[in-house]
Design a binder for these strands. Sequence first.
DNA 1: TCGATATTCTAGCGCAAGTTAGAATTTATC
DNA 2: GATAAATTCTAACTTGCGCTAGAATATCGA
Lengths: 215, 215
Amino acid sequence: MSKGADLMILAEDVRPLAHSQKSMKKREAILSAAIEVINAKGFAAATMTEIAAAIDLRDAALYYYFPNKQALAFAGHQRSLERFEAILARVEAEGGTGLCKLRRLLAALLDDAVGNGPQLYFGDNSYLDAEQRQAIEAWSARLSARLERFLEDGMADGTIAPCEPALVVQLMVGMLIWLTKWAPTTPGLTNERLLEAIEVMALKGLAGPKAVAGP
Amino acid sequence: MSKGADLMILAEDVRPLAHSQKSMKKREAILSAAIEVINAKGFAAATMTEIAAAIDLRDAALYYYFPNKQALAFAGHQRSLERFEAILARVEAEGGTGLCKLRRLLAALLDDAVGNGPQLYFGDNSYLDAEQRQAIEAWSARLSARLERFLEDGMADGTIAPCEPALVVQLMVGMLIWLTKWAPTTPGLTNERLLEAIEVMALKGLAGPKAVAGP
DNA sequence: TCGATATTCTAGCGCAAGTTAGAATTTATC
DNA sequence: GATAAATTCTAACTTGCGCTAGAATATCGA
């Protein structure tokens, strides 16, 4: 094996060897469908047939884009984390107090969920093999750490009360994961009301002495 | 079919026809193992073999106590809801302000999780058939309503700020479900620190003008 | 100790779902 | 339009797991 070929293979999966943009678009569609189904029913209960049917294909067609079900799910996790990271980076770039950033992040995540459907952000990944799981968890941990920074920033600038950032972040993640399951089935629920509830329950308590109202 | 026989069958599953107390104990052990495995890996990924192995049995032995996997999971949901309801009833009986009850309930749930392992409280149940799912969801809804009462009581007695109880309860449920997944794998984490984090993030924000500190 | 009952095991069936091979069909290029 | 490439399909193989039948073992009362 030449060193060059090795590097090509490491990047991700090799199936679409020299694929066009049109092909990549279908790959994305498959990924979205897979994320939705896996998120709704869990990895094991989500069948390749069902994922394929969601975009009018037969199960076998999926293997043209992904080598197997595991790799498809892995790619789904990666894409979800990319999206999360993009939102996170945007909020970081906009700056502001710790509490401000936290508030804007939550709003952006809700908007994203509405527009693009729920993701696999931090949920179950026990079905991945050791390397894949390690990669996803390391990535998740890096993102969580950046989220914790918001809390630390807030504790420094006085907009957030003393707390253990790691624990608080996990509590928030739990809220958000569960949100994607029940909120879509609750009729008449708007993002505004959700944000209001989160504001009252999760953010008001975190607010420190220098916190001010408003976005 | 006689009417009498019909009623006997409705109650639950019939397998352990005239079983002794010893047999019932094993049934409970199987239930606990099933709850743990299903909670950890999801219904579809949890195999009868693995559940049985957790208490040194072969998969076939489980069918002496439960007619099939679905019924086993259903019984698990029921047992979890029973436990939840028992805790809820105890807190209700002790009385106090709305915030007080909420606080004590969360503490009791954490204690329960430590002693008896995580439960299937409100998680996924898409694998149940229509009747079973309906039964579980109706029961869950009744319990949620009683939990919402705590918030309404608090809003009435001034210990909890104005909010939409149904939404806030769901946010809390999400925190708790997710908690059972990551907390056990976090080294050095105590219930005290968890309660403190919940107190700061979830309860302080809900506190109304008449709230006072302490348990 | 012995028979009856309760409990668990071994062996294997059947089915669903992941996967593959290769044919069929569409799409792109000249 | 014809040829090549890309994409999707049909059909079948394989495996793992829920589940069953019936044998084997343990438990217990007389």
